[in-house]
């Protein structure tokens, strides 16, 4: 019975995290589409990459319990967190380096 309750709680948590992940993913997608310039879009995709994937992976980890799969998912999570942020960083830096200027920082925008 206890186990069952515990299981229910896990399921609810999973659902929450999944919903959150989906929401973040969709909002990231919309942001990617709607935001005006490169850097702001970077922001949107950065959310999708890190927060959204974090939420979904965590939900999956909750579902898989203490198995090998969880450990693998954990590694993927770590990997994703580090690489996606690095990728966002590298992209932004390259864009800046190539001469893209943030829209908001421009003088004529005031």
């Amino acid at each position: 019975m206890d186990l069952n309750i515990f299981g229910n709680i896990l399921d609810i948590l999973t659902a929450l995290f999944l919903t959150a992940g989906c929401f973040l993913g969709i909002s990231g997608g919309i942001g990617l589409y709607r935001l005006p310039d490169f850097f702001t879009r970077q922001h949107a995709s950065g959310i999708t990459d890190s927060a959204c994937s974090f939420a979904i992976l965590f939900a999956l980890m909750l579902q898989s319990g203490f198995t090998m799969v969880t450990i693998k998912l954990f590694f993927i999570l770590i990997f994703l967190i580090i690489t996606s942020t690095t990728a966002t960083h590298a992209l932004a830096k390259t864009a800046l380096f190539k001469g893209q200027k943030p829209l908001l920082g421009r003088e004529d925008n005031h």
């Binding site: 580090i82 690095t86 960083h89």
Partner: peptide, 11 residues
């Protein structure tokens, strides 16, 4: 590209 280098070295 310090960040890239360090992450690269890590990964």
């Amino acid at each position: 590209h310090m960040v890239l280098r360090i992450v690269g070295k890590m990964f």
